[in-house]
């Protein structure tokens, strides 16, 4: 009794299952969202609770430029995947590189903001409650951008070596899901840190 007879009824639709890459990535995104939810909740609950200064208003300036960069990288990412799907490896590499560059600009921007805060304003994770929540939340997001950039860079190298083909478009799409997620989280972080919190 090692094989179960193929007893499929004739009227059943052909057997089709969701792609495990996509399901896996979506699951991961759900888990990550839960982590961010907790950090965002902590940030919101601690707004205005610091006993000593400085306050967000005194030292934070709104990082419009890098935000625009990051958000537009979602667009280039989308185009890159679309291009690959159509087999246009050349424009894929171009858009992929644009995404990588925009993400890197964002990360550098965050780094510069932190550098400014730490060296000019003397504001660190230890300064007060605001410092703790600010660096943790923004840092958590930045670390996700970093992970994304590393993944993007690996694909970029493979693409330059000519190893990325049309049939890989689904894998790239799975990766793009992560990247879109990181962007979406930034929208929340941005609203909370530079909007609500200020």
């Amino acid at each position: 009794m090692s094989a179960i007879p193929a007893a499929m009824a004739a009227n059943e639709a052909p057997w089709k299952l969701p792609s495990r890459g996509r399901v896996g990535m979506l699951s991961l995104i759900i888990a990550e969202s839960a982590i961010f939810t907790i950090f965002v909740a902590a940030y919101i609950l601690y707004i205005g609770k610091s006993i000593s200064g400085p306050t967000p208003r005194q030292i934070l300036s709104v990082p419009i430029f890098i935000t625009v960069c990051l958000l537009s990288s979602s667009l280039t990412m989308h185009w890159a995947v679309a291009a690959l799907r159509k087999g246009k490896t050349g424009s894929f590499a171009l858009f992929w590189f644009a995404t990588l560059a925009l993400g890197a600009i964002f990360l550098i921007g965050t780094g510069r903001e932190w550098h400014h805060l730490i060296s000019q304003e003397d504001f660190t994770i230890q300064t007060n409650l605001f410092g703790t929540t600010y660096y943790s939340l923004v840092g958590l997001h930045a670390s996700h951008v970093l992970v994304g950039l590393i993944a993007l860079a690996i694909v970029m190298i493979l693409a330059l070596l000519g190893k990325v083909k049309c049939e890989h478009w689904e894998r790239c799409e799975v990766l793009s899901l992560y990247w879109h997620f990181v962007d979406a989280v930034w929208v929340v972080v941005f609203t909370v840190v530079y909007g609500l919190g200020r």
């Binding site: 609770k49 610091s50 230890q126 409650l129 929540t133």
Partner: peptide
Amino acid sequence: GHFFDTAAGG
């Protein structure tokens, strides 16, 4: 940090 530091308002 001060997440759970009551002296800092946590």
